[in-house]
Design a protein around this nucleic acid. Sequence first.
DNA 1: TTTAAACTATAAAGCTACTATAAGGTCAAT
DNA 2: ATTGACCTTATAGTAGCTTTATAGTTTAAA
Lengths: 135, 135
Amino acid sequence: MRIGQLAQLVGVETQTIRFYEQQGLLPPPDRQDNGYRVYTEKHGEGLAFIRRCRILGLSLAEIHELQSYQDDPHQPCTAVNALLDDHISHVRSQITALQALEKQLVSLRASCNDDREVEACGVLAGISEGNMHQL
Amino acid sequence: MRIGQLAQLVGVETQTIRFYEQQGLLPPPDRQDNGYRVYTEKHGEGLAFIRRCRILGLSLAEIHELQSYQDDPHQPCTAVNALLDDHISHVRSQITALQALEKQLVSLRASCNDDREVEACGVLAGISEGNMHQL
DNA sequence: TTTAAACTATAAAGCTACTATAAGGTCAAT
DNA sequence: ATTGACCTTATAGTAGCTTTATAGTTTAAA
């Protein structure tokens, strides 16, 4: 299987596959005489694993860490669970921050309507006056 | 006022100030004979505006757009409001996506406990098996 | 007065996770 | 013979800074 087929199968671009190889997330495949990469099913699974991790929001470094655990299957999986717990709390704090932000933006938006000139715009005034407790 | 004082006043790093200048978000200040930048209160207000926009999650391009409206104060402020509305809906879709992600992560986490070996880890199995409807 | 700390300057590289572009080699079909 | 689809490497671009390198300037202490 060549790189284009693998890319289509998993739904990524060929450059992304080369990029993962370069980053050490995918093992370097064998090459044909002409230099073309030849992939096996194993590579497909590895790539799918990476993609699923990315969909879950894990960083390449975290994926690398997970792979290192997979390479040593008789350890306890405490570290895997801890990694996920950390990620969950990271996601939760992002949600909380964004919800606070949304509230702020909505209240800022409520301070203006479309019938004003920029000079009297409540939104711009709200940002400029700095009645935001963060600053 | 020199760059260090301005930085401390607004709570950013000096490099960030130079970066904003380079990006055209802060007007180039006058220089002393030795080449040091000299800032006025105006610059302080401009920088504070930028920082508040950043805290609200606006991109540098969006900030630039807002500044262009400020430079032309007798337009209607429709565009300002539209920019904010777009940003609010962007933030809302981020929240929605993260909430869906959190749900997925929590259910994945529930499939394991700390008393297993990596080989039998429910989390790794869950990612590997690909019973995630995205892929 | 010298010297060291603290400040300033510019330019360039590093960060994340790709994506895009350039310039070229390979292969099957026409 | 040439077109088109595929492959190769290397390099640059994205966002918003941060870091590093190198060097000149000011200020305070010894």
